[in-house]
Design a protein around this nucleic acid. Sequence first.
DNA 1: GCTGTGATCGCCT
DNA 2: GGCGATCACAGCA
Length: 206
Amino acid sequence: MLPLSERIWKLSARDFAPRLIGCTLVRILPTGERLAGVIVETEAYTGPEDLASHAAGGRRTARNESMWAEPGTAYVYFTYGMHFCFNVSCFRKDHPAAVLVRSVEPTEGIDTMRRLREGGTLRKRALRDRDLCAGPGRLCRAMAIDRSLDGEDLHRSSQLAILDRPAGQSEPPIVRTPRIGLGGEVGFWKDEPLRFVWADHPFRSR
DNA sequence: GCTGTGATCGCCT
DNA sequence: GGCGATCACAGCA
């Protein structure tokens, strides 16, 4: 599998989000260990007009600066006092568009992911593979993604990369739904079908 | 499988 | 000072 080509990063968030389904997110840990998973669920945050976006109305702050960066920049933010979420900027520099990666199917480093997920918290049952990375906070925990990776250039990073679908693989079947967990006065943006899910994929979030 | 609830803190107003 | 692009667990079906 090859890295995403230049023209793909430049798609609008609306087009980039479904295009990421089936691509592989790769994380190289400081130890050199490689973790990877196939993207099965994404959400698009289209630009300043998108009232559900952190950059709604053109808001530009230290926190969301990566949304405005070169296409293919990681935007990682902290929320709910305990979770990180991983996004990729797209479209063009100085325009705040990004795609949130909501869940992946783990393919490499699964034991390490389970250790990262279970670290610290006591659990009654062992985590199933399909729960390891099903949700934006979960996948960041399982792949050791935090704010230190905010601003990473995914073309050149030695820690994070996105590989395209294998050549010749057919397009995955995709279902569109409204985005999850939006609050505040976002008007019709709450209903816009900007969430993209690999149809009936067992590793999507619930 | 679904629903309700509490946890927890950096960032923006 | 208030809230959020969430999660885990309990309780119920």
